[in-house]
Amino acid sequence: MGSAFVTRLEGPAPEAQVARDMIRRALPAAPVLVGICAAMWSLEGAISSAYAIAIVLANFALSAAMLAYTARVSLALLMGAALFGFLLRLGLIFLAVLLVKDASWMHLGALGATLVVTHLGLLFWELRYVSLSLAHPGLKPSPKRNRSFQPAPKESVAP
């Protein structure tokens, strides 16, 4: 296992690609969830729900950024970042909630429900778009992205 301390992973980071895609897909869906929370808990619920969605997206982005950055240094640092990053991000979420828990616009029920639903919902939704193959380690190739790589149509050869 000595190689884990010196092996570094160059190239594009698939986790950053996946996290960006999750954020991109979350933004159009967020108003729906905020609307549902607004219907259940009025304006306080809507603002708390939006705050929870921001926390979840920031959590994904920070996790991906930490993994992508440390993978370029060494695998051992990647492992450290994954483990201590978990504690750090839990602490940051705790701090983010603690700072606003007494605010007039805060509804803790809406915040908690949105945290869990958004986190799990985004993950399960993203599983549809993850490829996990050697050719495409991150997301599945979309037809739009591959349009430039399509081979030119064969020219007809006169007999």
Partner: peptide
């Protein structure tokens, strides 16, 4: 690359348990 993607998603799924506890 493939392992990193699996690892990232695995970490996120596991973290959901901690979020529920929170």
């Amino acid at each position: 690359g493939m392992v990193r993607t699996t690892m990232f998603l695995g970490i996120a799924f596991t973290e959901a348990l901690a979020l529920i506890g929170f």
